[in-house]
């Protein structure tokens, strides 16, 4: 049942460019890009409880890095541009994460917000590299002799990279590192008492989160083909937060679901820019009120009785052994 659903889903994703109009192929690429960001943000905020209002900044760092590499080294394969985006953004994540160790809650939110502004300022000031407000045209991604010049080709690039990132994230959260991040969210003292180096894992969460967002930024650059600093404003960071709240904090599939829903919604509201914040706000409030835990936990609740997993504890047993 489950593998059948997965197989049908995979077939649908692979055949999408053949079935859907061009614009929807582009939209699907955007969904995958946003899903990668949402997973990265969720690892930081949902798993480790470090709220970030600056992920548009990481996305911009990744996007401009990939675009600059592709411009300056025209023959270089897209993998090189994406790796550069990943590494540079991860390094920026490290540089931001270390000082942020001293901050929590509102102060951390303010620091990451400021980071987002700093990135936009930096793009404007480094106009030799970024062409500032004029915007930067991104050459087509290259894979050996081929240029990925159509929406379909770019979609497959995004899909392959996205699938790898999702797979790695699912592995990560199921093993020791993922549990350490969750432990920090739940109780820092108990995490320390279990031998977890809290500062190291909080920093690691920043690095991994930035790395994911940097790769997404690189893909974003090739998908849209044109970068300008105003695309990376604070509202984009808020959109990412909305995605993980709607999808479910602490859930990788939830991150993807939240990204899909809000990307499509964002797109359908494109003609009504003035109402967008209103609709987004209403959806967020409604989801927090009626669907705490987001799409992920709603799906779990729907599945649980069927699979027979007890959600509420049966009565206490008399004692040990």
């Amino acid at each position: 049942m489950r593998s059948l659903t997965l197989a049908m889903g995979a077939a649908g994703l692979l055949l999408w460019p053949w079935a859907a109009p061009r614009y929807f192929v582009f939209l699907a690429s955007l969904i995958v890009v946003n899903a990668i960001v949402a997973i990265g943000l969720n690892l930081l905020s949902g798993y480790t409880n470090q709220l970030s209002f600056g992920h548009a900044g990481f996305l911009a760092v990744g996007a401009y890095t990939a675009a600059i590499v592709a411009t300056r080294a025209p023959g270089a394969p897209v993998v090189v541009a994406l790796l550069a985006a990943a590494l540079v953004t991860a390094l920026v994540g490290l540089l931001l994460g270390v000082p942020c160790l001293r901050l929590e809650g509102l102060y951390l939110a303010m620091a990451t917000l400021a980071f987002g502004f700093v990135v936009v300022e930096a793009i404007l000031n480094l106009d030799g590299l970024t062409r500032g407000n004029d915007g930067l045209r991104v050459p087509a991604a290259r894979l050996g002799p081929w240029a990925l010049a159509t929406d379909g080709a770019r979609y497959y690039l995004v899909l392959v990279v996205g699938a790898a990132m999702v797979w790695a994230a699912l592995n990560l959260v199921r093993t020791r590192t993922g549990r350490a991040l969750l432990a920090i969210r739940e109780s820092e003292v108990a995490a320390q008492a279990s031998g977890i180096h809290v500062a190291r894992y909080k920093t690691l969460a920043f690095v991994i989160s930035a790395l994911y967002t940097g790769v997404a930024g690189g893909l974003f650059a090739f998908v849209v083909g044109f970068l300008s600093p105003d695309a990376f404003d604070v509202f984009l960071s808020v959109d990412f937060i909305a995605m993980i709240i709607l999808g479910g904090l602490g859930s990788v599939p939830g991150s993807m679901a939240g990204a899909a829903v809000l990307t499509v919604l964002n797109d359908s509201l494109a003609g009504f820019q003035n109402y967008r914040p209103l609709v987004f706000g209403a959806i967020l409030i409604a989801s927090m009120l009626f669907m705490p835990g987001g799409i992920a936990s709603a799906a779990r609740r729907l599945r649980a009785p069927l699979a027979g997993h007890p959600r509420v504890a049966p009565g206490s047993r008399p004692g040990p052994e």
Binding site: L172, T175, I196
Partner: peptide
Amino acid sequence: LDNVLIGCHAHLSAGALRGALG
């Protein structure tokens, strides 16, 4: 189960990269 697995943390060795690569 996860509570107890976190208790095992110090005895496990998989880092983030090896974990992510499965």
